[in-house]
Amino acid sequence: MTPLLRDYGSNEVHLDSLKLDQGYLQTSPEYAMKCLLAETGQSIYQLCSAFRAGEVGSRHRVEFQMLEWYRVDYSLSELVRDLETLISEIVYTLAKDFTVSAVDRHFMSASYAALFREHYDMCPHASSDDQLKALACDFAHLDAFSRRADVLDALFAEAVEPQLTKATIVTDFPACQAALAETRIDEEGNEVAHRFEFYLGGMEIANAYQELTDADELRRRFEENNKLRREMGKEEVTNDAELLSAMTTLPGCAGIALGVDRLLMALLGETDITLT
């Protein structure tokens, strides 16, 4: 098991680590697991607690359970098959003792752009920042957002997410939401993030990346996030030196993080995460 308490916090703009005198409780085991993966070159998995400061709601808890795994030389479509197998095993096991919602053996799949277009009649990749902001104002009083990634997130959460009640894989996220995933050029020539999210019961359950292995690009993204943090008046995060140095030996891999509490919510039909 990788340490939950490390010297570095998450660099993500909208993730806040719980800070202790001795270090940071990890918002996900991602950084530590990638260091281990770079060292051993082996596929790994882990079930552990993750901590996110200030996240409290019917679908959020400061401490929650995350199942995360990385597969060396793996593609995202292979990872989808992992997930399908895992979910059907969990449904089978849970069904012995509980009433469990049925989940299709094979998940539906749709690109982010296709789903976005269906609801908003606009391309999330090619449209300008101003077009997206105008859309946000029209649709849901979402005028409080300024960053492109945030506007897109809010629009997606308002209209698309609640519709994704059946097991669905959403692929090819906007490039500005790549986080630690690689980017690629899609069939229409737009740069997209090479990642997918798994939805069930109108909730995001898991998040998968074709993992970025380029140290320079990672450093650039870290610095970009710190710049945004400064602009927002948030504390900057020290670049994770261990992760940056691990990137040089990180093998090509795909990784996925699954929120266990939310999966149980969706399968057991609970509406409050504290009940799982």
């Binding site: 703009v13 909208h14 996240e55 997130d153 809010a154 959460a157």
Partner: peptide, 8 residues
């Protein structure tokens, strides 16, 4: 409270 993954 709504928080899309790593979003605002």
């Amino acid at each position: 409270f709504v928080k899309p993954g790593k979003g605002q």
